[in-house]
Amino acid sequence: MYAFDVIGEITFSKRFGFLETGQDINDMMHHTANFMTYTGTIGQVPNLDWYFRIKNPILHVLRPTSNILSFTLKQIQEHEKSPEKNSRDLLSRFIEARQKYPDIVDDDLLHDYTNTNVAGGSDTTAIMLRTLVFNITTRKQVLDKVVAEISTVMKARPKDTDPDTPITWAEGLSMTYYQACLKEAMRYHPPTAQILPRVVPQGGVELCGVYLPAGTNVGCNAWTVHRDKQLYGEDADEFRPERWLEVSSEQAKKMEALLFTFGAGKRACVGKNIALLEMTKFVPEFFRRFEVRVVDAGRYRITSSWLAVQSGLDVYLTLRDPAALVAEV
């Protein structure tokens, strides 16, 4: 819900309202999850997608749809009706691109931009947030270090700072151990469960001693890359943030450079910095506001299709006084 509302604010200058209502507004999360499952299956045989959507109108009704489209169409209409009221959100920039490059950006592409923005920036970030919360909460040593680091940041604030002031981006970045947790979460549980394919260009290419002809689809699975023991250590199958702090700066840069969480190269995720911003601010603030205890770690499950989505992250929350962390000795 948090991830959806944030991407709504960035894209449309308007939150969906998940957090205020505590509800799945218009079943958007439900339909997005179904579409990701559909993509993970039918996406392996793209011709079937064409068949379901275009060739056979009867089968078309079986294809998952999303109420996000209705919401985005409404926002586009409102932006176009009163452009002077719009802030410099992403939708405003998409509309400007359509006006500036009409031969490239048409109405359909504008719709794709906004829908992809919401779908791509919600579930993926939510997966990372769950990974962080679960793995920090279920490891007392990790949790204690994160809370101690939050306390240190709080104590470093000017004395007249309102204790209710949220943790800032700069403060989140200064938390060395938490940033190691963040990198470890991206390594340990990348949201994308399948390969990110590329097409071999004309002339073919030789990879690892194997010749691949032009037109071949080739890719890497982030889960496999991130469990490389030569790169990340013999305990690469374990969640251990300390691995990022124990190595030399050169090795740490190499380990981070080969993280495939957001893809790589020219097609790396354009929302990477937004996701990092959300994770850097939200999780420390979450543990600052609440004492968190997992109800039953055995309920935690991962289901893989296009994304590796978790379920069963049920927790007990006890409200924490933000000022208490400053007072702790």
Rank of each mutant, 00 (worst) to 15 (best):
I68Y: 00
N26R: 15
F290Y: 14
K254F: 10
D24R: 05
S82I: 11
T161S: 12
K100M: 04
G233T: 04
Y38S: 06
H31I: 08
T125F: 01
G219T: 06
I104K: 15
G40R: 05
G43Q: 08
F262V: 02
T280R: 00
Q44A: 07
L132W: 00
C208T: 08
G172D: 00
R139V: 06
G17R: 01
W50K: 06
R130I: 10
L313C: 08
R243V: 03
A268H: 04
S122G: 07
P102F: 09
V294M: 05
V295W: 07
G8F: 02
Q99M: 13
A193T: 10
T176P: 09
P284G: 01
R299Q: 13
D228G: 06
A297T: 15
G233C: 11
I150V: 12
G121C: 05
N273I: 02
L132A: 01
M29D: 07
P46R: 09
E184T: 04
A180R: 00
I150K: 01
P158H: 13
V133M: 05
Y101K: 14
T165C: 06
F282M: 05
R267I: 06
T39C: 12
R187Q: 06
N26Y: 04
R157G: 00
H30Q: 09
K266I: 15
G271T: 01
A33Y: 12
P64N: 13
